[in-house]
Amino acid sequence: MVNKINKSIKKDNMKSFFTNTYRLFVDNKINIDELKKRLDSKNIILPSEFYLLSKPEQKRYFRYQSTIVHLAKKFENEEQEVFFNSNYFYWIAKQAAKSIKATNELISYLHDLKEVNLIFLGMQQIKVKNTKLRLNEKMMEYIKKKKIHNLYDLMIDLIGSPHFLADEKELRDKLIDFLKAENSLGFDLNDATNKFFFLMENLLHVLPKKEVNTLKVKFLVLSKDHLRKSDYYDLHKSPRKILKNYQDRGVFTTGALSKLKRHLKDNPYLVDGMYPNGYMALYYAFIADSEVK
């Protein structure tokens, strides 16, 4: 136990050492050579591409918070804004694959970003075994049986499937509670809008991941900056042709489509009343196509 606590303190110290040292670099107090020297002395290894970047890019590499200074109020009003930084996101995601602490950091980052598209993106990087769900034996048995690893796949499998067994209801509720909790992602699947986004994800889930990402970029669900280059295809393809191709092959005639339609029947003004977003455009293009046929 003492060892565990010591290890944890050491880790926390390392983190604050890194944060403080990196801050000195951002604040022009030390140069890049000095930064490297200080981090090396503590065996903190940064991603290899970091040292190849320009100084401004290095300064922004690990930052994900920005200060907004409002001019209308003559500088009296300042607020902090959390923004998406792909370097930081994939760096922390890489660590989250092996560590519960980094997983918590990633979850808290996604929570602060408060953007559903990024929550879905981040969930694909979160291993269920590193979340609080690991404490639920039944859940762990379930993911072992279904060979599920990440939180996103668990959500699609458990909540997206058209039929589920009675004993899966408990797991389903547990997962919904976990996603909703304020100290977790703060993502409420019982909210009709969120459910619509989820059902759109559920619909696309049957396509190859790269194709889904290509569609997401085209429909502005995600921007190219959110992904790595290898995560999507050529963006000159027409997204409606991609969708039509899959529609013609009958890929979408699954329970996912009927679930989506049922949800929209229950909430007839949902999509039309939304603030413009990529899922909405995707829905219009998709439903329009299927209705025209």
């Binding site: 890019e57 290095q58 300064k59 922004r60 918070q65 200060t67 907004i68 200074v69 409002h70 001019l71």
Partner: peptide
């Protein structure tokens, strides 16, 4: 001038900006 300040701040890698409401 404010647009230019924001551009320079961004190009230099800092994380603050002036919001023109």
């Amino acid at each position: 001038f404010i647009y230019c300040i924001n551009d320079v701040v961004n190009d230099r890698g800092y994380c603050f900006k002036f919001e023109i409401d």
